[in-house]
Simulated scan of single mutants.
Amino acid sequence: MLKELSSLLKTAVTAGANKALATCCPSQGRLTKAQAYRRFGRYNVDRWLSEGLIELTSVNPSISKKTFDRAKLEAIAASSNRVTYLPVAER
Rank of each mutant, 00 (worst) to 15 (best):
M1H: 10
M1W: 05
M1I: 07
L2R: 05
K3T: 12
K3W: 07
E4T: 09
E4F: 05
E4Q: 12
E4N: 04
S6H: 15
S7G: 04
L8E: 13
L8N: 13
L9V: 08
K10W: 00
K10Q: 06
K10V: 02
T11L: 03
T11R: 15
A12S: 12
V13P: 00
T14I: 06
T14E: 11
T14Q: 09
A15D: 04
G16T: 00
G16C: 01
G16N: 12
A17M: 12
K19E: 15
K19C: 07
A20L: 15
A20F: 13
A20W: 09
A20M: 12
L21G: 08
L21A: 09
L21M: 11
A22V: 00
T23D: 09
P26C: 03
S27E: 08
S27R: 09
Q28K: 07
G29K: 04
L31W: 05
K33M: 09
K33V: 10
A34D: 12
A34V: 08
A34M: 02
A34L: 09
Q35Y: 00
Q35W: 00
Q35V: 05
Y37K: 04
R38G: 00
R38L: 08
R38E: 10
G41H: 01
G41K: 01
R42T: 12
Y43G: 12
Y43A: 15
V45W: 03
D46C: 05
D46F: 09
D46N: 15
R47T: 11
W48N: 10
W48F: 14
L49I: 10
S50A: 14
S50G: 02
S50N: 08
S50V: 05
G52S: 00
G52Q: 02
L53K: 14
I54E: 05
E55I: 01
E55K: 15
L56F: 03
T57N: 07
T57Y: 10
T57I: 11
S58T: 14
S58M: 07
V59W: 06
V59N: 09
V59D: 14
N60P: 04
P61Q: 03
S62P: 00
I63D: 15
I63V: 07
S64C: 01
S64L: 04
S64A: 12
K65R: 11
K66I: 02
T67S: 14
T67H: 13
F68V: 03
D69A: 14
R70F: 07
A71R: 13
K72M: 11
K72L: 13
L73Y: 07
L73M: 06
L73E: 00
E74M: 08
A75V: 04
A75Q: 15
I76W: 06
A77Q: 02
A77F: 06
A77K: 01
A78R: 08
S79R: 13
S79K: 14
S80H: 04
N81K: 10
N81S: 09
R82D: 15
R82L: 15
R82M: 11
V83T: 11
T84L: 14
T84E: 04
T84M: 07
Y85Q: 11
Y85C: 03
L86G: 05
L86H: 07
V88L: 11
A89S: 14
A89P: 01
A89M: 13
E90V: 15
